[in-house]
Amino acid sequence: MNSIAEYFTDLYKGISSLWAGMRITGKYFFSPRAIVTQQYPENRKTLKMEDRFKGEIIMPHDADNLHACTGCGICEMNCPNGSIEILSDRVANAEGKMERIIDKHIYHLSMCTFCGLCVKTCPSDALAFGQEFEHAVFDRNKLTKVLNQPGSKLRKEAK
């Protein structure tokens, strides 16, 4: 007799516990406002990442195609993975002094771990993080980028 009563109490408790869970799912099923899913590929135009989002490393250029990189090599030295390579030249300026200018600032996106040390340690704030995050390509070579635009020059500080 006792075991029969126990059996039905367990059955009742079990069904009520399942019902408690089903009530939650039912509540969300019938209130479409609570849906938080983003329709990602469709909402590409309105999708905006946060300002500080670490998507990739870029070198900002102004309207006159000038950048701030002096080619000092601190970012290359601080990078833990060797994802930055700087090829620089020494060229004589108007006063006849030898000056270092960057030839190519090469950035290997495939090796980058987005630790942010290069952006933080750059003494002339030449590097920044970009918001681009769709990096999938079919060819691995496309992930090696040259950050300084062709024909760009070092921005001279106003003295």
């Binding site: 500080r52 987005f114 942010g116």
Partner: peptide
């Protein structure tokens, strides 16, 4: 669904959601 709210806070402050190298010896980045 609820974890997303925390990751959004992380993303706003440090720019990354999971692996945020936000600390540095001596303080924060």
């Amino acid at each position: 669904r609820d974890r997303e709210h925390i990751l959004d806070i992380f993303e706003e402050s440090f720019g990354s959601r999971l692996l945020h190298s936000f600390n540095t010896p001596g303080g924060l980045m």
